[in-house]
Amino acid sequence: MVVINGKNADVAGTTILQYLTDEEYNIKTIAVELNEEIISKTYFANIVLKDGDVMEIVHFMGGG
């Protein structure tokens, strides 16, 4: 299991890019952190998610 934005997901074995594409994220407007490290977009296709990984996918929204 991979924990993505606080929820368990059965996606170990897929790349970050594959996951984001499957979930229809807009790659341009998000940033990704894997195990508390920022992952540059250029590596999305190279990094394979594995069991125990913790991934955060964030974007901007309104705030003060």
């Binding site: 407007t29 996918i57 974007h59 901007f60």
Partner: peptide, 17 residues
């Protein structure tokens, strides 16, 4: 202008930028 950073959970969310 200030913005917040939040988890992007759904694909429908609008892009504030």
């Amino acid at each position: 202008i200030t913005l917040a950073v939040r988890r992007a959970n759904t694909k429908e969310e609008e892009n504030i930028l």
